[in-house]
């Protein structure tokens, strides 16, 4: 960028080239500073989680680098002994089905919106667009009542169902917009050959939509994995995911940082790994759904 500017403007004098160089140095330094600024909070959490409790209570985590003797995995061991593992598995048991169900249900609806004709299609899709921004608070009380009547209040199934329902508008929106971009010729050909709609959907459209499904999947996965509010209301203590388990520890913040820090770090490991592995799909999903 800078170089091309210089090359493109040969009339510029030596002076401006020098200031460019200096400006570039300042910008480099500034960006490094900002990057550090953004990394330090998470780094702090990590260091606190692998330090002795006594050390955490007396000095700042940044002093630990000079005293490597303080590092220990004891907090993680203690945490796993408290039954935190069960909340980890609860998180998995909520997130995986919620993600798969959203993809399946939304893909079918999106296919209908994109490639099938039925009365009221466009208005109905506008309703879906409108639902993108509905705050989940609106449903907490009514759904709690509904779940009570159905006998699934507090269960994992209830939490999953709630996430699926509120994940759908975004999912349908994203997939439908991808599906309409699929070449009509492919569908025409399949229809000419007498393939059923279900067959077209499952063997032509669905496989073609892999990038969009990956975007949706990663997004929905992170959204459900990281949710606190839904779990707070609908999951009882046997079925609580990590976020809720951690939240219940917040009250004694300070005295139990040896539980909170490793717990928080464990809860963010999987999202971070997924994020780095699939960041390009994550970005796509985010962009496509930034109305959310």
């Amino acid at each position: 960028m800078t170089t091309s500017t210089i090359a493109g403007a040969p009339r510029r004098g030596v002076l401006s080239r020098v200031t460019d160089r200096i400006g570039g140095g300042v910008i480099q330094a500034l960006m490094v500073l900002i990057g550090v600024f953004w990394l330090v909070p998470t780094l702090g959490l990590f260091v606190v989680s692998i330090r002795e409790e006594a050390a955490n209570n007396s000095t700042g985590w940044w002093t630990a680098f000079t005293k490597p003797a303080e590092f220990t995995l004891k907090s993680y061991g203690d945490l796993l002994a408290t039954g935190f593992t069960s909340s980890f598995w609860n998180t998995v048991a909520i997130t995986v089905p919620a993600t798969i169900l959203v993809i399946g249900i939304a893909a079918m609806a999106a296919y209908a919106f994109a490639w099938m004709d039925f009365p009221g299609r466009d208005p109905l899709f506008l309703v879906v667009v409108g639902l993108l921004v509905v705050p989940i608070q609106i449903a907490l009380i009514p759904i709690a009542k509904l779940y009570g009547a159905l006998g699934i209040f507090g269960s994992i199934a209830g939490v999953v169902l709630f996430h699926v329902a509120f994940g759908l508008p975004f999912a349908i929106f994203l997939l439908r917009n991808f599906f309409v971009g699929i070449p009509a010729s492919l569908l025409e050909a399949a229809r000419m050959d007498g393939a059923s709609e279900w067959r077209i959907f499952s063997t032509v459209v669905f496989p073609l939509a892999k990038p969009a499904i990956a975007s949706l999947g990663i997004f929905q996965f992170l959204w459900v994995w990281n949710d606190l509010l839904v779990a707070l209301v609908f999951a009882d203590s046997d079925n609580q995911p990590m976020t809720k388990a951690l939240q219940s520890q917040m009250r004694q913040f300070g005295t139990n940082i040896d539980i909170l820090a490793p717990g928080a770090f464990l809860s963010l490991i999987i999202p971070l790994v997924l994020f780095f592995a699939f960041q390009r799909y994550f970005v796509q999903g985010m962009m496509a759904g930034s109305v959310k």
Partner: peptide, 15 residues
């Protein structure tokens, strides 16, 4: 953005 707001909360309580 990949980190839960819950974990971000713990992070900033520390900060």
């Amino acid at each position: 953005m990949a980190v839960s707001l819950m974990a971000s909360g713990v992070i900033f309580r520390l900060v």
